[in-house]
Simulated scan of single mutants.
Amino acid sequence: MKHLLLILGLGIGFMSFTYQSDVPEIINALKSANAEAVSGYFDSYLDLTLPGKEEVKNIGKNQAGIALKQFFSDAGVHSFDLTSQREAGTTMYMAGKLNGKSRSYNVTLLLRNKEGRHQIISIRIN
């Protein structure tokens, strides 16, 4: 019985480390201005707001990835500075600055835990 409890406890412990492992990867993808890597964490459908454009609700993952890649290219995004990160239940909020060639942009991401990994459900850049 003790062995079963030990194995169960270790399994739960290891799963909790796996649960958080994708957040640093998302941050690193933003820091390296890799839109393709960021879009790998998009949910199937998400809300997207880019500077000078109306918010698009329920845009498909592929279309959002293309739009983000185009924005990164046009703005010359080269780095990201995380300023805030909060988690409540299965939802996480991250905010920071995307640094472009001529200016910085505020960015907020809303993520949710789905099937053991964080997925971006909203990204707003202004």
Rank of each mutant, 00 (worst) to 15 (best):
I59Q: 02
Q119V: 09
V38F: 00
R117V: 15
H118D: 04
E36C: 06
L6T: 12
P24K: 09
T108L: 08
T90Y: 12
K61L: 09
D74M: 10
E36Q: 09
F71W: 13
N106V: 07
K114D: 11
H118I: 05
Q63C: 06
L10Q: 12
F42E: 00
G52W: 06
A88H: 12
R124E: 13
H3I: 01
I12L: 10
G60V: 00
M92K: 08
S104K: 06
A35W: 00
N62G: 04
M15H: 11
K97E: 03
Q85D: 03
A37Q: 08
L98I: 00
S73I: 08
Y93A: 01
R117E: 15
M92R: 12
Q63N: 06
P24H: 12
Y45G: 14
I59W: 02
K114N: 03
L30C: 01
S122F: 04
E54V: 08
S122A: 12
A35F: 00
H118T: 03
S44W: 05
A37Y: 01
K57Y: 10
G40V: 03
I12R: 02
I125W: 06
N62K: 08
L5F: 15
L4P: 10
L98K: 01
L6V: 14
S32R: 10
I120S: 03
V23A: 13
E25D: 14
Q70L: 07
G9K: 08
Q63P: 02
E115Y: 10
K101Q: 07
D43V: 08
R103E: 15
Y45R: 15
G89Q: 08
T108P: 02
M15L: 14
M94Q: 03
L48T: 00
T83V: 07
G11F: 14
F71E: 10
N113M: 09
M15Q: 11
F17P: 08
G13V: 08
F80Y: 13
S39A: 03
S21V: 14
L50V: 06
I12S: 12
S84D: 11
N106D: 12
P51W: 11
G9I: 13
K69V: 07
L50I: 03
N28Q: 15
L50H: 07
G52F: 11
M92H: 06
E115W: 08
L98Y: 02
F42Y: 02
F80D: 06
A35T: 00
N106M: 06
K31V: 08
G9R: 07
I27A: 09
H78S: 11
G40F: 03
S73E: 15
A35K: 01
Y93C: 01
H78F: 10
T49L: 07
H118F: 11
D47M: 02
I125Y: 04
I121Q: 04
H78L: 12
S102G: 01
R124F: 11
G60Y: 02
L8I: 09
S39K: 00
